[in-house]
Design a protein around this nucleic acid. Structure first.
Lengths: 226, 226
DNA sequence: CTACCTATTTATAATCC
DNA sequence: TGGATTATAAATAGGTA
């Protein structure tokens, strides 16, 4: 080397250390190049200086990825296995969940019922009936909405039967409005005297020209029972 | 180096090449060690000989995985990106699908119906009714099964009404059995004269002591309409 | 293969610009 | 920093065991 023997231990002076690093780095890269050419070997050399700066060399016949793939293949370990496995496990869970959901849908669709016992089938039937009722209720909402009618839900009136007649009888009841649909743009004069069977929905004519009678809740309108 | 200047090109003699590889490999590993100690650098050196044999060196302060993670972090590239991205994309698709399935279930359960229009709701209602019918049918099967009755499905009889009376009237019909439930272990004398409303299911008394009358299909029994 | 030997080439520490 | 110089240590080709 140079003027006097070198002790192989960390150079304390940062400037000298950096200078030595630059020189020796060039040297080792040259050695790596020679080795790969002379001996037809694949060589990968990666170096980080104390400041974190990267220097690398890799034989022209390959790439860093190529070297590492081969490295992992030969050492028989996948260094990123855990990362991969975690993702894979997550995926498998999702797939499993998916299968369950699909099965549930099939059963709710009247398919794939072979495995179910009488009691389970009875429960499923009741479930479906309940759902049907909810959908019907919602459909009624949607129907009125289509016809530009504001709907008021009055939960206190439990079994009122259906139709406008019952509604008229209960005109003086405690009308604690819980839901009010926003009005549809269009003809506010439309009025409909229908209600979903067995539910507490009433069609109410909107009179937007009248001053507000109520001012709390989800917006307020001048309302009169049709 | 040695006796005379060396030309930096592949050594053709395999033995000499191998010898040179061994010597220079030791040399470069020594250089790498010195570099990492003297200059406090992280060094990774991976070599494959022409025969595929692996030699490696890595600074004691780190590991090959550590070096490569840092390498990828600094170069800003994930060399195994595609591998993970593929998996990740798959996972995301599953999650998305999952959300859709959940939504469908919720809707079939009468929840989360806000976004649906009248027509969609009507379709959903019809779906549910159809499903309910199927579940009811299956329930009837299960009920008869519970009671140790063998059921025969006769698809040709389309609208027969319900009950044992109709069945008796059609006793002479073309009975092309398509489905036959395996008998339940227990009392073969049980007979039930009920059928699921509007479907073609009949309860038939099993007479296992009698010789087989039919021998094709899913198993054959001696049968008499109850 | 590994170890040693030795003539030579290379690498490089110290120094200066 | 970045080269050029130079004295000297290290590396190593080729050989032998």
């Amino acid at each position: 080397m140079g003027r006097g023997k070198i002790e192989i231990k960390k150079i304390e002076n940062p400037t000298n250390r950096q200078v030595t690093y630059s020189k020796r780095r060039a040297g080792i890269v040259k050695k790596a190049t020679e080795l790969s050419v002379l001996c037809d070997a694949e060589v990968s050399l990666i170096m980080f200086s104390g400041t974190g700066k990267l220097f690398e060399f890799v034989s022209s016949s390959t790439t860093q990825k190529g070297v590492f793939d081969k490295y992992q293949q030969i050492t028989g370990t996948d260094l990123w296995k855990s990362k991969y496995e975690e993702l894979q496990a997550h995926l498998n869970k999702q797939k499993e969940l998916n299968a369950k959901l699909r099965r549930e849908i099939r059963q709710r669709n009247g398919e794939d019922l072979e495995g179910l016992k009488f009691d389970q089938l009875r429960r499923l039937e009741q479930d479906l009936m309940k759902s049907e009722e909810l959908v019907r209720l919602r459909k009624a909402y949607a129907y009125f909405y289509l016809l530009n009618v504001v709907l008021i839900f009055i939960p206190q009136f439990h079994v009122l039967g259906s139709g406008i007649d019952t509604m008229k009888k209960k005109e003086e009841g405690d009308m604690d409005c819980q839901y009010a649909f926003a009005e549809h743009e269009g003809d506010y004069q439309s009025t409909l005297g229908l209600a979903s069977e067995g539910s507490q929905i009433y069609a109410i004519r909107v009179q937007p020209t009248q001053p507000n009678l109520q001012s709390e809740g989800y917006g307020s309108y001048g309302l009169t029972l049709a």
